[in-house]
Amino acid sequence: MSVIYILLAISILVAIIFFIAFVFAVRNGQYDDSYTPSVRMLFEDEIVKHKTRKPSKSKKD
């Protein structure tokens, strides 16, 4: 067998893996809300910053 068949099989397989990943992403509802996650991903930092600031605040009080 020529190597081109193996290459074809591999390339299609890789493509299909990505396609399946897409289908799973849609099925899990990842495309239902396209706005909130873009805001949410920025929040993790905010909470940490807030917590580190907190002790100095309580001292003032």
Binding site: D32, D33, S34, Y35, T36, V39, R40
Partner: peptide, 8 residues
């Protein structure tokens, strides 16, 4: 847990 859907 609580999760917001901003669009809806």
């Amino acid at each position: 847990s609580s999760q917001v859907n901003f669009g809806k």
